Computed example of a mutant assay.
Amino acid sequence: MADDPARKVSLRTLREDDLPTLFEIQLDARAQHLAAFTDATAGDRDAYLAKFRRILADTAIVSRVVEVDGLVVGSAAVFPIEGDTEVTYWIQRDWWGRGVASAALAALLAEVPARPLQARVAEDNLGSLRVLERNGFVRVGSEDSFAPARDATITELILELPG
């Protein structure tokens, strides 16, 4: 289909001037519920901006903006955590179900050759689970963890993209 938004997805380096837009995108209550593991900065603009300024300064983190035809629709990143390397992404809800997250993750994986990569997803976040599986991630485990956005302990699936 010629007007398929996934064909027009691009990544670029995240800049500080992108942060206000990304803050607004992540305020979506449904998205926060599905992501489950947002922290206290999710509702506090100043704290969010400070947190992401620290992320931007960390050269070990690959932070990208996701665009569709030049419009900022989300972010994607690869970051080290507790001896592993994980991927994360956040796409504006208006763009869900249109292949944007899958295309953005594929572009990020092409850019970052490090393997294995891990990802975590709330067990009931079926859309994000499909995005990861479409990009070659396989389930390797699960754990029950406290999810601040839900104020509850939930099952989080652990996936890996093998090396």
Rank of each mutant, 00 (worst) to 15 (best):
F23W: 01
F23N: 01
F23M: 00
I25T: 02
I25Y: 01
I25S: 01
I25R: 00
I25A: 02
I25F: 01
Q26R: 14
L27V: 01
A29H: 06
A29G: 06
R30C: 00
A31N: 01
Q32K: 14
H33P: 00
H33R: 13
A35F: 13
A35T: 13
A36C: 05
F37A: 11
D39T: 15
D39P: 15
D39C: 15
T41M: 10
T41R: 14
T41C: 11
T41G: 07
T41D: 13
T41K: 11
T41H: 14
G43Q: 11
R45G: 04
R45H: 08
D46Y: 03
A47C: 11
A47K: 15
Y48M: 04
Y48A: 03
L49K: 04
L49Q: 09
K51C: 09
K51H: 15
R53G: 12
R54H: 14
R54Q: 15
I55W: 10
D58S: 04
T59C: 00
A60D: 15
V62D: 08
V62E: 06
V62P: 00
V62N: 01
S63R: 10
S63P: 08
S63T: 05
R64S: 04
R64D: 01
E67T: 13
V68Y: 07
V68E: 09
D69P: 05
G70F: 05
L71F: 00
L71A: 12
V72K: 00
V73W: 01
V73R: 01
G74M: 09
G74Q: 08
G74P: 07
G74F: 10
S75L: 10
A76G: 10
A77V: 05
V78L: 03
P80H: 12
I81K: 09
G83E: 06
G83I: 08
T85A: 10
E86S: 13
V87R: 04
W90G: 10
I91L: 10
I91V: 15
R93W: 02
D94P: 11
D94H: 09
W95Q: 05
W95S: 02
W95A: 04
W96H: 09
W96L: 02
R98L: 15
R98D: 11
G99V: 11
G99D: 08
V100F: 05
A101N: 03
A103S: 15
A103W: 04
A106T: 07
A107T: 04
A107L: 12
A107G: 07
A110R: 13
A110K: 11
A110N: 12
A110P: 03
E111P: 06
V112L: 02
P113Q: 03
P113L: 00
P113I: 00
P113K: 02
R115P: 02
P116I: 07
P116A: 09
L117I: 07
Q118S: 13
Q118W: 11
Q118Y: 13
A119V: 11
V121E: 02
D124W: 08
